[in-house]
Design a protein around this nucleic acid. Structure first.
Length: 343
DNA sequence: CTTCCACCGGAACCGTGGGAAA
DNA sequence: TTTCCCACGGTTCCGGTGGAAG
């Protein structure tokens, strides 16, 4: 009989969507965000917000933290990740769902404009906040116009890219001219270390990890809190599985590269069969020319006895892979080549 | 200078699947 | 049930771009 020596006390603490009770190192942004949304409490129009900054800087977390505070004022907020929910229809559908509108429709058979009308009617009497995470993944910016012309709806747009709105419809841009622009800079190494300490304190059994290990993780994750927290989670899980009762340096060393790969693997897994073939070809041939890519792809399909998709669709897929940052497209027209990013 | 070539990407279109009204 | 409606993913069509070849 083995004695179980747990290391992890609370798994939720290490989940991507965990919101700590006390959010540190983002005081300025939290205050701005609160001010922007404050009018809602007095049944007035809030100020739209545009949040930008590199991954793992607390953009999503901070938004959820502040909008969470509005719950006690019974102001609902709708969080939408535009990676998963990217069509105008689906976004509206989700908003209605959260607003508690009973929808007899499941998915098909209802016109988008009908959903829009329903939403506008509902928001006549009630205000709400809509958070659009990864806005640049929307496949149609009409939805932004829909939102911006809906009274009592305050938008929080989140993106890695500071310039997403630059080529949006001018009517959207003008509405966003008065929006609050909030920049989230990369965390410093010591800030990451402190965030890890906070998580360890509530998520791990006391004393199972040395401070210096937390600092080691912090130092090797270049300001990305999500990767840092995932590293800690993976190391803790390994210690739990090995039943060592504490996290060793070896656990840390193994966890660091795994955490970075995890994100990539997740997106590769979500690709369809054709996209995976294309990805593999690019991976095995550096700087592939489009014509070579098409022919290799067709050959591969023949070998697998599957119907190849058309070139135009391949181009659409390539576009998607570039957005996922799984591949890099360099050069224009004739000189276009595709390759896999370094590291 | 004109034609050709390889590629890009917008727009319209089409078949499919599934809910809803008749 | 049948008929209609509609979102969605993929396809068809095609104009544009810019260097190379004639």
């Amino acid at each position: 009989m083995y004695e179980d020596i747990p290391v992890i006390r609370n798994h939720e603490v290490f989940a991507d969507d965990f919101i700590p009770a006390q959010l540190n190192h983002r005081d300025g942004q939290i205050k701005s965000l609160r001010d922007d949304l404050k009018p809602l409490i007095d049944k007035e129009q809030g100020r739209h917000v545009f949040i930008y900054g590199p991954p793992g800087t607390g953009k999503t977390c901070t938004s959820m933290y502040v909008t969470g505070e509005l719950k006690s004022e019974s102001i609902p907020s709708v969080y939408i990740n535009c990676w998963e929910t990217h069509s105008r229809f689906k976004v509206l559908y989700k908003v209605l769902e959260v607003l508690g509108l009973k929808l007899s429709i499941h998915n098909k058979g209802t016109a988008t404009h009908e959903l829009l009308e329903k939403m506008k009617k509902k928001l006549h009497e009630k205000s709400c906040v809509v958070i659009l995470d990864e806005v640049d993944q929307l496949d149609d910016d009409k939805i932004l116009y829909d939102f911006v012309t809906t009274p009592n709806l305050t938008l929080i747009l989140i993106s890695n890219n500071e310039t997403v709105l630059a080529d949006a419809d001018p009517r959207i841009r003008s509405r966003f001219a008065s929006a609050d622009n909030l920049e989230f800079k990369q965390y410093t190494t010591s800030e990451i270390a402190e965030i890890l300490r906070e998580r360890a304190e509530i998520g791990l059994v006391p004393g199972v990890i040395q401070n210096s290990y937390l600092e080691k993780i912090a130092a090797s994750t270049s300001g990305d809190a999500r990767i840092a927290i995932n590293s800690l989670r993976i190391a803790a899980k390994a210690a739990d599985d090995a039943n060592t009762g504490r996290i060793t340096e070896e656990h840390i060393n193994k966890a660091l590269p795994t955490a970075e790969k995890e994100v990539k693997k997740k997106s590769i897994d979500s690709l369809n069969e054709h996209q995976q073939i294309i990805y593999k070809i690019i991976k095995s041939t550096s700087d592939v020319k489009p014509s070579d890519l098409y022919s290799s792809y067709k050959k591969e399909c023949e070998a697998k006895q599957m119907e190849p998709i058309k070139d135009r669709t391949i181009r659409k897929y390539l576009d998607k892979l570039v957005q996922y940052k799984l591949i890099i497209a360099s050069g224009e027209n004739k000189w276009r080549t595709y390759s896999i990013p370094e590291f």
